[in-house]
């Protein structure tokens, strides 16, 4: 699974993206966020308030119950501020 981070989430995690292989029971966006948060350090800092974390799976917005699979591109970012 490919993870990509943007804006302050990227800064707090410390890298723009990475490839990860979560455990088999991580099958939803919500479970993936909890698994990442449990890694501690920059992940825990970036994910401490999930109300300001948005997720896109394969470039489409996805809620906590949305499925994630090996091979997906999952993006984590703050609420958008373009325009």
């Amino acid at each position: 699974m490919k993870l990509v981070y943007f804006a302050w989430l990227r800064e707090r995690v410390g890298i723009p993206g990475e490839s990860v292989t979560p455990p088999a029971d991580v099958t939803t966006v919500g479970a993936l966020l909890q698994w990442l948060k449990a890694r501690g350090g920059g992940y825990a800092e970036a994910l401490k308030d999930l109300s300001v974390v948005r997720v896109a799976v394969n470039q489409e917005y996805a809620g906590p119950d949305a499925p994630v699979r090996p091979g997906d591109e999952v993006a984590l970012f703050p609420p958008v501020t373009g325009g």
Partner: peptide
């Protein structure tokens, strides 16, 4: 586009960088 397109603004001022909040 302001609320859906994935863009993020980082403001720079004398006080440093600051990510704009939605």
């Amino acid at each position: 586009l302001k609320t859906k397109a994935p863009f993020w603004k980082l403001e720079e001022s004398g006080a440093g960088g600051h990510w704009v909040e939605a």
